[in-house]
């Protein structure tokens, strides 16, 4: 059986009498691309914050990279990477300075940072831009760089929160090439998106509705079960009845 790097059992988060996350259970395998979908307000962000060690659950159990979400939040943070559409690099630092800064935050040695950043700059083809301010890069490049920085410390898992929002269709696909490469190197990818074609690129997908997981399977299996031509139809059938909606 594949090694499981995220295990959730009846994970619950309650704010007052509002069940933001309502007894969700699932496992994510090492090297898997795991799509975490849901309607606005379904509880995705709350669940993700718990798994990233930023918020405590009300009840239930979960481990991330083998660490407990109640007791070992700091160890979780050291073993994951995180990137969102909104989170961005420091615009008034150069490409290299950003890489050095984040490498330093994760405790990498100066030597490691130097050799890995050379490698990264070459991979991304950013030799000309390495000493330019990040603020001067086009959006597509910023997002690709942000992803590379999020996995610079070679975390076990990377969490991507709508990483491709607003990005052009060509760059969006280049971004997914990078996700595939990261997964092939053994990094587990946990990703949310509003683009339903991207749901098809995941190995498995969960769809959350009103705090619960309503479906969890490979895209192919979900389409067969819901007799749908694509993931958008699957999503629509499941989320249409949602009671709550929010940001």
């Amino acid at each position: 059986m594949a090694e499981q790097v995220i295990i959730c059992k009846d994970l619950t988060k309650r704010f007052g009498d509002f069940m933001a996350v309502n007894k969700i259970s699932f496992e994510v395998n090492r090297g898997e691309i795991f799509g975490f979908l849901g309607a606005n307000g379904a509880g995705k962000t709350t669940a993700m914050r718990i798994l990233c060690g930023l918020s405590y659950p009300t009840s239930g159990a979960a481990t991330v990279a083998g660490f407990d979400v109640y007791k070992q939040q700091e160890s979780i943070k050291r073993n994951i990477g995180y990137m969102s559409q909104k989170f961005s690099l420091y615009e008034n630092l150069t490409v290299l300075e950003n890489i050095e800064f984040y490498g330093g935050v994760y405790g990498l040695s100066r030597k490691t940072i130097r050799s890995r950043s050379d490698e990264l700059i070459n991979q991304l083809g950013l030799q000309q831009e390495a000493r330019k301010l990040v603020g001067e890069l086009p959006l597509g490049w910023k997002q690709k760089l942000a992803f590379s920085v999020a996995i610079f410390h070679q975390p076990q898992i990377v969490f991507l929160d709508e990483p491709t929002g607003g990005v052009d269709p060509v760059t969006r696909r280049q971004f997914w090439d990078m996700i595939y490469a990261a997964a092939a190197s053994g990094i587990t990818v946990f990703v949310t998106t509003h683009y339903m074609d991207e749901a098809e690129y995941c190995n498995r997908v969960t769809i959350m509705v009103d705090g619960k997981i309503e479906a969890l399977d490979a895209p192919q299996a979900l389409k067969a079960r819901f007799q749908a031509n694509n993931m958008e139809e699957v999503f629509y059938q499941l989320a249409r009845g949602a009671k709550r909606s929010s940001d």
Binding site: N40, H194, F235, D247
Partner: peptide
């Protein structure tokens, strides 16, 4: 409709 889910978009 940016950042809005499929159901609300429709």
């Amino acid at each position: 409709t940016t950042g809005v889910d499929v159901v609300s978009r429709r």
